[in-house]
């Protein structure tokens, strides 16, 4: 897996609300330091001042109450905690108050074991962009509508540089939004444990200039902006779209989750391979477990195209 993600942009406050979250974090940090030291400093001081050698038995005093002090150490921390609750609330408000869809770009996110897919609304030509990485224009509200296939598990779309995260739940559509003022490439990590390749489930958010985005969005390119379009066979497109590469390598012999498909045509005939896609548990290769791969209910023509791609590379 190409883990060339670098946590880029963590300190640049790329998303508009990142500074609100950080402000809340640092207010919390300093209040915590004050509260923590209000316990720990007296503890060290008393342990030193009333150390065994220093105290005569007759000087010990049983102080058991001090109303003023007790009220103080109840009310002052309570007030401080209410300040923290407030900042927790306000920083949530900026994260969770969605902008109007009419003033935003809506992108549909699908998380499945173990890849991300971004699907855009149709452009003027009726063309629908689909991409692994997310491409968005600078200075624009982006709303992510996220879900996972019904037979999949929970994931979470976590963008550390933006300080945002929300679970991606099968059978539900969850939302989050952002507005980035800085160009750049930002990591997306899966933060809800989802199995074997949970820690490989990365993608990226590319914030690009508006003009570049517009040009790409209104075009019919099947790859991201600035990338050179490579002619893909229908089978290869299906292979990418269905996230097959998340579990099966095809260019190398590496076993990811399922077996490698390199040279699979020499080992199995087309009927076996079709069954392996539509009803994977029918004949599980040795060393692999039934139930790991979900059945893929695709039209026959698509299954044929996939098998062609697997056996011939086209």
């Amino acid at each position: 897996m190409d883990v060339n993600n670098t946590l880029q942009g963590f300190n640049t406050m790329a998303a508009t609300f990142a500074k609100d979250v950080d402000q809340a974090f640092w207010i919390n940090f300093w209040i915590s330091v004050i509260l923590g030291l209000s316990v720990i400093i007296p503890m060290f001081y008393f342990a030193w001042k009333y150390r065994e050698k220093n105290v005569k038995d007759e000087d010990i005093e049983n102080v058991t109450h001090n109303t003023a002090l007790e009220i103080a150490w109840t009310l002052i921390p309570t007030a401080m905690l209410m300040v923290l609750f407030y900042y927790g609330y306000t920083s949530m408000q900026v994260l969770r108050t969605m902008p109007a869809e009419s003033e935003s770009i809506v992108v549909h996110v699908e998380g499945k074991k173990w890849s991300w897919k971004h699907t855009y609304e149709a452009n003027k030509n009726g063309f629908v962009h689909k991409s692994k990485e997310l491409y968005v224009p600078k200075d624009t509200n982006i709303i992510l509508k996220m879900t996972a296939p019904l037979n999949d598990v929970i994931h979470a779309y976590f963008v550390p540089a933006f300080r945002m995260k929300e679970d991606v739940v099968p059978g539900r559509v969850t939302k989050q939004w952002f507005h980035s003022e800085k160009l750049g490439t930002y990591d997306v990590e899966c933060a809800e444990y989802c199995g074997t390749r949970h820690s490989d489930m990365y993608t990226k958010i590319n914030v690009i200039p508006k003009a570049e985005y517009e040009a790409w969005f209104e075009g019919n390119s099947k790859v991201g902006p600035g990338e050179k379009e490579v002619e893909k066979s229908k089978g290869q497109e299906l292979y990418d779209d269905n996230g097959c590469a998340g579990c099966h390598s095809i260019d190398t012999d590496a076993t990811l989750v399922g077996p490698s498909l390199k040279g699979i045509g020499a080992k199995h005939d087309a009927t076996y391979l079709k069954d392996a896609i539509v009803t994977p548990d029918k004949d599980v290769p040795e060393g692999f477990t039934a139930g790991v791969m979900p059945p893929f209910a695709l039209p026959d023509a698509d299954v044929d195209a996939l098998v062609d791609y697997m056996t011939t590379g086209k």
Binding site: V21, F85, L95, K165
Partner: peptide, 8 residues
């Protein structure tokens, strides 16, 4: 416990 911070 602070919601916005916990989201991160």
């Amino acid at each position: 416990a602070m919601i916005g911070v916990d989201i991160h």
